[in-house]
Amino acid sequence: MKTLLIILAIFTTFFTPIKGLILIMILFILSDTALGIYTSIKLGGVESFKSHKLFNIVVKSFFYLTTIIMAFLIDKFILGGLLFGITHLLAKVMTAFWIYIEIKSLDESSMKLGNKSFWVLFKEFIDKLKSLKKDLNEIIEDKKE
């Protein structure tokens, strides 16, 4: 038991530089899973929720986290930790790619529930910010005159 704890401590210490990336990825996977379960039950009732679909979480989590760890190992041992002046760039890019896929999945689940796409909402938000900036600039120019 003591040996197992020592090995676990070694792995934990070694992967400390990317623990944030791993935790963010786990958070997105759990969010997508929760929304997927909610959407399935909301649209098809409790009968539509099947446990064998939940096994995909294990496969997806293992694949995502393994590729992030592999990218970290390439960053650390082949590239020396820096690429274009950014530490652990490959691990960060890999994480961003998987997060994009999870956001897309969240968006699809949300649209199944009748909501607007995240991207449409984001564009509308940016347009409102631009309009607000324009209004503020007009107010500032009016005060100067």
Rank of each mutant, 00 (worst) to 15 (best):
S48T: 09
F14K: 00
I18K: 06
K42R: 10
E102W: 08
H88A: 02
N115R: 14
M1D: 10
T13F: 12
K2L: 06
L5W: 09
T66N: 04
D127W: 04
T13Q: 11
F72N: 01
Y100H: 09
T13A: 14
S31K: 01
K133S: 09
K143Q: 09
T3D: 07
T67W: 04
G44Q: 11
K92G: 15
F14E: 14
E47S: 12
I101N: 15
L4H: 14
K134N: 06
D75N: 05
L82Q: 14
G20A: 00
K143W: 08
V120R: 00
I18P: 05
K92L: 07
S48M: 04
G85M: 08
N115K: 15
K76N: 06
L79S: 00
L21P: 01
K42Y: 03
F63A: 13
L65F: 02
D142C: 00
E141S: 04
I7W: 09
T3I: 10
L5V: 05
I57V: 11
E124M: 02
K134E: 12
L8A: 15
E102A: 14
S109Q: 12
I22N: 04
I68T: 12
V120K: 03
S117F: 05
I10P: 06
M70T: 12
W98S: 08
M25P: 03
K2T: 09
K104T: 12
M1P: 12
W119G: 01
F63N: 12
G36H: 02
E47P: 00
K53V: 08
S109T: 08
V46I: 11
I57L: 07
L30E: 07
F118Y: 13
I26F: 04
L106T: 05
S105E: 05
L8E: 15
L4R: 13
L65S: 02
K116A: 07
F11T: 10
F118L: 05
M94A: 12
L132C: 06
D127E: 09
I37D: 02
E141A: 08
K112V: 07
L83G: 03
I29A: 01
L27C: 10
E108V: 15
M111T: 09
V120Y: 04
S109Y: 11
L43I: 10
Y64V: 15
K92T: 14
K19A: 13
F97Y: 13
K130G: 03
L89K: 09
K19W: 15
V93L: 15
I69A: 11
T13C: 11
L89C: 10
T95V: 05
I68V: 15
I41G: 02
T12I: 11
F49E: 04
G45M: 02
G20F: 00
F14P: 00
I10F: 10
E145G: 10
T33I: 03
